[in-house]
Design a protein around this nucleic acid. Structure first.
Lengths: 208, 208
DNA sequence: CAAAAAGATTGAATGAGTTCAGTTTTTAAG
DNA sequence: CTTAAAAACTGAACTCATTCAATCTTTTTG
């Protein structure tokens, strides 16, 4: 009961994911052929499909790993956030956006998002959607925390406000990856302006 | 200079779009083959590609027609909106959402959205993005109008608030089409809750 | 009206993702 | 250790979206 089979499986899975990620970065998603990914991973095309339902699945898997990192980065902000709503949001959103292009190109993001919308039932799309939910929760948690601290007025629905901030930053991130010329700075400016009304209005008068 | 060529072109274009729309509704996007669309439209496969760059383009064209209707429906609300922010938003968003599934299935929406994200440079994707922008403007216009009327406090950035409402309703619509079991009523409830903080806080004290 | 040029159509060929029947490897049973 | 059953692998074959060189139709020119 050594679990040779389990070991081989884990190893092949790792090799396939690595080969795909490398190739996507080198030649882009569209130009990376399954045959090439399989060859690099030293498996057959058929085996590839034993591990991933389709080509998109493996990209979504790669993106999911990146989102995990973004979540971890966000956690440091949520654990000890700046004092004001404006500053806290700026820090968290900046963290998200800055991490987004470290490993992935805009093209990879576009493709991954497209897949997660188009095939919402595939296992990795579900995973991506779940991670999105955790990001949303993170923003809500931030607002809730600020409320407990007194930076956000009592009586405000902190969860609803957090979801709105998240949906806004997420939608604008989609605009960002759709537009090859938009810079991270421009994105941050636009989102900051959009957030300002809500951020200001929910803040406790003394602190804003 | 009768323009026989122009007439034939317009006619073929109409036939192709109609055939594709019908087939998408009948069998879904994925199962509709270009060959079948071409056959119904009584043209060859090659001619299809003379009119549309790829399969996705024609779906986005169909969706664009639907969005045009949604925009027209929204205009009636923006032209004479209810008195309060909450009611006005409810009316406009309700109009949007109720019109969304008249001609298109969730699957068609998912595919269209996926394409507009993945191939942002294709002509029809640009058109879709432009329509999205007009929807966003419509929401901003609504808030601006309410501000001029005194229902929204002066000093509020009405455009920013409008964009935030729009990004929120748009993101939630994506969630809606991703989840085959979510109903329109559930969607409206969730969005209403998310909107409430901002809607309440920007409202003039007397009127809310 | 003839004929050359421009514009469109056509469908067989191409190429990449995906499938699946047959083969090999691993595990479990005797 | 043998052998049967289960699991995983394999790559040739299949399906469509897409392309393009040849052909046909419309318009313009002389």
């Amino acid at each position: 009961m050594t679990g040779l089979r389990a070991k081989q499986k884990a190893d092949r899975n790792r090799r396939i994911l690595q080969a795909a990620t490398d190739l996507f970065r080198e030649v882009g998603y569209d130009s990376a052929r399954i045959e090439d990914i399989a060859e690099r991973a030293e498996v057959s095309v058929g085996t590839f499909y034993n591990y991933y339902q389709n080509k998109g699945d493996i990209l979504v898997a790669a993106v999911s790993m990146e989102v995990e990192e973004v979540l971890a980065a966000g956690k440091t902000i949520v654990d000890s956030p700046p004092d004001t709503v404006g500053e806290a949001l700026k820090a968290l959103i900046g963290q998200y956006y800055d991490h987004s292009l470290v490993y992935l190109s805009k093209e990879m993001w576009r493709t991954a998002m497209a897949i997660s919308i188009q095939q919402p039932e595939s296992p990795f799309s579900k995973r991506y959607t779940e991670l999105d939910g955790r990001l949303c929760d993170q923003v809500s948690t931030l607002i809730t925390k600020l409320q407990l601290r007194g930076a956000v007025m009592p009586g405000i629905d902190a969860v609803a406000a957090g979801q709105m901030f998240f949906n806004n930053l997420n939608m604008m991130f989609i605009e960002f990856v759709k537009n090859e010329t938009m810079t991270l700075d421009t994105l941050k400016e636009i989102v900051a302006r959009q957030n300002r009304p809500l951020a200001t209005l929910i803040s406790s008068p003394k602190i804003q």
